[in-house]
Design a protein around this nucleic acid. Sequence first.
DNA 1: CAGGCGTGGAA
DNA 2: TTTCCAAGCCT
Length: 341
Amino acid sequence: MASALLAWYDRHARDLPWRAPPGDPPPDPGRVRPYRVWLSEIMLQQTTVAAVKPYFATFVRRWPTVEALAAAPEEEVLAAWAGLGYYSRARNLVKCARAVADLGGFPDSEAGLRALPGVGEYTAAAIAAIAFGRRAVVVDANVERVVARLFAVEDSLPAARKAIRAAADAITPQTRSGDFAQAMMDLGSAVCTARQPKCLLCPLSANCAAQRTGDPARFPVKAPKKAKPRRTGTAWWIARGGRVWLVRRPGRGMLGGMRALPDDGWSARASGDGAPPVAGEWRAAGAVRHGFTHFDLELRVMALVDGPPPPGEGEWWPLADLESAGLPTLFAKAARRAIAR
DNA sequence: CAGGCGTGGAA
DNA sequence: TTTCCAAGCCT
């Protein structure tokens, strides 16, 4: 199966900014390949290629090496990450860059990589295989799906993880395991897709147990999901002299460390308390809806013109530079709503 | 091991 | 409109 898949990859590999072409990797005189592979892998965690591309371009232009990134203030990295989501990745990105700079470079073993902040089992294997040519078993959601179908795994996820990993190990070749991993991911992305797999285009269809069942999309079997609760909350838009009051959120938890509008505590409780931070003539500026991983939020936006700053830390941010404030998407939406009113 | 943790695009 | 999902990690 590996040789069939690699032959397919040699013809159909996607051309991606962080990726070397199939086959022997080109020289890396600046020794930036591990950095670019690591950066792309962190950005790609639970995130689509299309969403990552512009962020990857911005990051490598602004911080071309891991040493440059290690020297950057965390606030600047968080602001550059704004909109990409899962902000603990950005906080760990900075920690990891500093650890790697202290080490004098990226570890080249799976175990060494696994010890870095933000690098789990998948990412350690991916970097070891793709950047360092090590034989590693790379299992992401694509590989899980492809393997579950190849072997028609009836056990449901996540219980089937162990068996799927063992099967992935069994089909991972000793050489070109980086290409093999990327080939599995490209296959999962373009051919062996979650909803309507294109088995007629698949180089492995003759070996696929799920294809023989006639209903390959049934795999992988998954446990039913829980319903998402809904929350409501309020964000406070306090404007004064062409500026707006922004705060920085606590360093962990929802949108941790990110610049934000003040709010009524919806992220810490089932819903916000709606209590304004200062007295004044508040007016309703509308509401925005935003879906998080584990709840849906309706965020009302209340505006106060020429208000005093609320108690606590914060800063008056120029409205003309709001794009560069690094607001997460939720608060960027709320800001647009406030400005539109 | 389950739950917290973003976002945008496709169906 | 709603649901599902995409190169997961950490606690």
